[in-house]
Amino acid sequence: MLLQDKKFSLLELASVREDETITDTLRHSLCYAQRADELGFERFWLAEHHNMEGIASAATSVLIGHIASGTKRIKVGSGGIMLPNHPPLVIAEQFGTLACLYPGRIELGLGRAPGTDAITMRALRRDMRAADDFPQEVGLLQQLLAPLKPGQKLKAIPGAGTEVPIWLLGSSLFSAQLAAQRGLPYAFAGHFAPRLVREALHIYRESFQPSETLNKPYAMLGLPLIAADTDREARHLATTSHQRILSLLRGNPLWLKPPVDDMTPLWSPEEEAAVKDFLGLAVVGGPDTVREQLETVCRELPVDEFMFTIDIYDPAHRSQALEILAALRT
């Protein structure tokens, strides 16, 4: 019963299978979003990453438009736009345009980290200290997306008056505090940074200040998830995610690889521990196990919504995971 009160959403990185093209990947992403739309998922967000082989979501706002154009109901947004990489005016114009094209369906999740390395930041022509200005730039974005005021000099056209919903994203405590101060919805990146989840959610709820946006806190939790017909099959499918995180830790390309029967030859004991720590909040199993694990999270953590990352190699199996999730809420 606990799950019936929670909304389910998805985070997409447009992960490229090692035997396919980016064109294939983007086609799969759209089909995935369309199935989520049909099944009643709440939102579909795309993550901004740059200079990463195996991830095709760098042009995040472009992909948001692509997904929104191919779906009907589901909210589409960023999870997130890494604000240090962009001038706020440009983001306001991009998301304002999207909001005009797809009214009521576009959302703007914002992250404070650059989401990339120093070389890439310089290529993006952003100041290495831009993250220090995050609170001010969030405020500027709020102003640019709000209705125009008399005498306002700086205007986002399109953008002004669209009031695109802004979320703050975080994997530490900073954005939890800022979201609470500004009265904004908050999403914690438990899909890759599980350690501070309890503290961040506690700070957000305890420090929350009501605003014109929200009168009470609203927290979403990102979780890695692998759902299949049986626990055994889910554990097998999860080796795709294990290989990917292993590649990340080694600094290798992040191609999505087929599942394997045994990870033992592929990693050292130290690497295995690091991968499992990275995926510390992962939910893996058949329908009953997934239900039990999610209900445990519901009892232990004060979250209003789940946003799942589902790294499954076969698109058909990935779609099946959505169907399993949807059935848990009926």
Rank of each mutant, 00 (worst) to 15 (best):
A227F: 09
E295W: 07
G285F: 00
S247M: 12
L237A: 09
H242P: 06
F278M: 04
C298Y: 13
L214C: 11
E270G: 04
G280K: 06
E212V: 13
P217D: 11
D231V: 09
A228N: 12
T240V: 09
A238P: 09
D288R: 12
A227Q: 06
P269T: 03
T264H: 12
L246N: 07
D231N: 15
A219N: 13
P210I: 05
H242S: 05
A282F: 02
V275I: 00
I226Q: 00
R235W: 15
A234W: 00
P217E: 11
G286P: 03
G251S: 05
H242K: 07
P287Q: 02
P269D: 02
D231H: 12
L214N: 10
R244P: 01
P259N: 10
E272N: 06
R235D: 15
L266W: 03
T239A: 08
R244N: 12
R250T: 03
L225I: 13
C298I: 02
D229L: 12
V297M: 00
T296Y: 06
T264V: 03
L225E: 05
L223T: 01
E292V: 05
M220Q: 12
S241C: 15
S268F: 00
H242I: 09
P287S: 03
P210K: 08
L249S: 14
N215C: 13
A234H: 04
G251Y: 07
M263L: 14
L281Y: 06
S211M: 08
I245G: 01
S241K: 15
G286V: 01
E272L: 04
R291E: 01
T239K: 13
D231Y: 13
L266V: 06
A228L: 11
V260I: 09
E212G: 14
P287L: 01
A227P: 07
N252F: 08
E272D: 13
R232G: 10
S247V: 06
Y218I: 07
I226P: 02
M220I: 07
W267C: 10
Q293M: 03
G285P: 01
V260P: 14
R232I: 07
G285M: 05
V275N: 02
E292A: 15
A282H: 01
S241R: 15
E212A: 14
A273R: 13
I226T: 15
N215F: 09
H242F: 14
S268C: 00
E271H: 06
I245C: 01
W267N: 05
L256M: 10
T289N: 14
Y218G: 02
H236Y: 15
S268M: 00
I226K: 02
T240E: 12
A219Y: 11
S247I: 03
L223M: 06
A282E: 05
D288H: 07
Q243T: 02
S211H: 07
D277Q: 12
V275A: 09
G280S: 04
Y218K: 11
T239L: 14
S211T: 09
D231M: 11
E233T: 14
P269Y: 05
V260A: 13
L256P: 04
P217C: 14
L246G: 11
E270P: 02
L248N: 14
W255M: 10
E295I: 04
Q243M: 09
L254W: 01
D231L: 10
P259Q: 10
T213R: 13
Y218N: 08
P217L: 12
P258G: 02
